[in-house]
């Protein structure tokens, strides 16, 4: 197994002065290629903050994060944008599909951005079919069920063939059947060599992962 992502001594503080507190107090993490890692923790424990740091959406106050041998800390905003475009896919808790775009258009969106790998349209069509939402591809988000919305969100995360998929509470808005289907999809991603990190507060959801890490007092156990 080859290490894809390494985080070492990651610290993140929020607030200033006396109101300042450490959300992450020295997190260490090593994720291998093709591994599904679940980060379990209570609400407000810092799971989402860790996910944002790992995805280059935010910067840590201390520590280091390395993705495929490249340190995220030394990157400019432009380089971080490029990394997010080509190497990282995000699945958000509330899907975050753009309301004015159909499911298919949402999937196509990252593929149309400057610097995206070519062939996005074909990949988007294939992903939509593979995830079983081809029949509703032209529907707007509010015309879709929660499970369908989440599948489009996953397709959007995968359309540029990222090495790492970060999923924030991916089953949070789904019923039990849809949640089970989603976990199967995430599991399938690792089979294709992608690494997946999902954060959740549900222990049975975390149980589907290769490895479960628990966030307690700003550290991973």
């Amino acid at each position: 197994m080859v290490s894809l992502l390494q985080a070492c001594g990651v610290v993140k503080r929020v607030g200033r002065g006396r109101a300042s507190s450490e959300v992450l107090a020295g997190v260490d993490l090593d994720v291998q290629e093709g591994e599904l890692v679940a980060v379990l923790g209570r609400s407000g424990s810092g799971k989402s903050t860790l996910l944002h740091l790992l995805g280059g959406l935010d910067r840590p106050d201390a520590g280091s994060i390395t993705l495929a041998g490249q340190s995220l800390l030394g990157c400019s905003q432009r380089e971080l944008t490029r990394i997010r475009l080509r190497r990282i896919g995000f699945v958000f808790q509330s899907f975050q599909l753009i309301e004015e775009m159909s499911g298919e258009e949402n999937v196509l969106l990252p593929a149309g951005l400057p610097g995206a790998p070519p062939g996005g349209a074909l990949r988007a069509r294939n992903l939509i079919e593979e995830l079983g939402v081809g029949a509703v591809a032209s529907h707007l988000p509010h015309e879709l069920s929660g499970g369908e919305q989440q599948r489009f969100a996953i397709a959007r995360a995968l359309v540029n063939e990222p090495a790492l998929v970060l999923a924030d509470e991916p089953t949070g808005n789904l019923d039990s059947v849809a949640a089970r289907d989603l976990l199967a999809i995430l599991r399938g991603l690792t089979a294709a060599g992608r690494s997946v990190i999902m954060v959740t507060h549900e222990r049975d959801v975390a149980g589907a992962a290769d490895r479960v890490l628990e966030m307690v007092d700003g550290r991973l156990r």
Binding site: R84, F92, P110
Partner: peptide
């Protein structure tokens, strides 16, 4: 919406 775009890799130009 803009934040999702940026999270997906949209730069300032996009």
């Amino acid at each position: 919406t803009i934040a999702v775009l940026r999270a997906c890799g949209a730069d300032a130009g996009a």
